[in-house]
Design a protein around this nucleic acid. Sequence first.
RNA 1: GUGCCUUUAGCUCAGUUGGAUAGAGCAACAGCCUCCUAAGCUGUAGGUCAGAGGUUCAAAUCCUCUAAGGCACGCCA
Length: 556
Amino acid sequence: MNIAEKVQEELKAEVKAAVLKAGLAQVEEIPAVVLETPKEKAHGDYSTNMAMQLARIAKKAPRAIAEEMIAHFDSSKASIDKIEIAGPGFINFYMNNAYLTDLIPVVLKEGEDYGNTNAGNNEKVQVEFVSANPTGDLHLGHARGAAVGDSLCNVLEKAGYDVTREYYINDAGNQIHNLALSVEARYFQALGQDKEMPEDGYQGQDIIGIGQKLADEFDRKFVDMSEKERYEAFREYGLKYEMAKLKKDLENFRVHFDVWYSETSLYTNGKIDEALAALRENGHIYEEDGAVWFRSTAFGDDKDRVLIKNDGTYTYLTPDLAYHKDKFERGHEKVINIWGADHHGYIPRMKAAVEALGYNPNNLEVEVIQLVHLYKNGEKMKMSKRTGKAVTMRELVEEVGLDAVRYFFAMRSGDTHMDFDLDLAVSESNENPVYYAQYAHARISSILRQGEEQGITINNEADLLLLEAEKEIELLKKVGDFPIVVAEAAEKRIPHRIANYTQELSAAFHSFYNAEKVLDASNQALSEARLSLIKAVQITLKNALKLIGVSAPEKM
RNA sequence: GUGCCUUUAGCUCAGUUGGAUAGAGCAACAGCCUCCUAAGCUGUAGGUCAGAGGUUCAAAUCCUCUAAGGCACGCCA
């Protein structure tokens, strides 16, 4: 348990003890102790609303209850300096902040592990994200999903969950069929022959590129093949090419997957049949109009869903539910899907399927990522995937820079519609929030370098109790919050909380930097203590930025 | 028409167990570099938390209704 958490736990225990000693309520009546950090510094370091919560149980006025509680407080036990009653009945605690200096050696020692907790209890969590069809370039929406998904995975890992990152490759359905036909058309076109694109073909530049590449490399080799052979060749080549590109783009986006799960494998290894058999056995399947249906309405869906079309092929849902069955069979306790907003209507049927297959639908969590609108020169940019006009993830990164893109997406909760201001993201100025945190890191690095030049370095014997200025204490508190923030972000699946935190921590540092000088040749002891402090800040900031996939530069 | 998401400062957004005077960045205004990076700091101004009811000691937060914008409602994926 980290230090800040420990202090809070002690305090909570004392609050509870005081209620009991004052005879205000029975043990089982006491609500969970809520400690919060008041927005106003004047309201102390922590406050609790216990007195107000007890008003009904103890049948007394909140302020009177607070009085009695304070009378029974053992201040020595929980590093409390002063207690006050305020407002309608808040009890404010002013802590003895000496404990905070204990934090620094811990951070320095843990280094990149600082912030790790076992809040997740090693729970096995599988996160599926991006999972874009391998039929074209990743676009803006995928970039957001990738950024949010990756950050969430990082946060979960740091908070002690056992995370598997997974990409579901839709390599079996209609879209691959269309990909093959699109490649074929582009190939013939590259050879100067007339060939129309299929109706639902992929118009993207990259497919034109494949056609050209095949023409350059193999010339007329495919023209002479049988149609079937040619189709198979293009299908395979197109898929391989697209997947390689996808993986590379994601690597360049600092996103890594543990498992690339092939939809086709569900066909070949019998998982689809197994899933269908399981549903049939449980009586959730019926036939009508020549099709096989899943009675998903029995599990809260608004209509039943076709699993096998009357032409004998599966709908998209069928392999996907087999995939989800497999996710749980592999022992994942929680399965998290990160889906684009355009798929949100799909959630009830997948939850229904999970339940029908015998699993708890609450263990399937779907995080919906809302659309991104790109703005340039104050105008909204129009885009369409069908015509291949969408801005790709690669273009976005090239234009804006990776750190800025990751940061912009990490800043915002995934479930809000987002406006992405290209001009702001591109600007290398104080208008761009990504530099705020990076600049803090670079500044610290610079001070540490200069300290070494001046012979003032971090010293394990430094007297950290010298750190008592207001800005120092605030900065230390922020550093101490980090493990709690990570755990909260993980539990609530809100990775944007981390981006938020980097701003808070940076703000505390910049403010400290302007108020106090770190390197002071005339005060070696204080300089050493402050060096330790900023080193701890640097470590924390770097760890936080790493969680959201943003680099921590030494110089800017 | 039905379901889901959104609506908070001029703009982009935090506010995720209901708490005290609703916050940050940008934009605006006024200051701060003989001093560790001014991509910074300090201060000022800026709000009917879309609207109306309700729940309670207390609501931006929970419930109901209304409005506006977005997305989805396929034997497509």
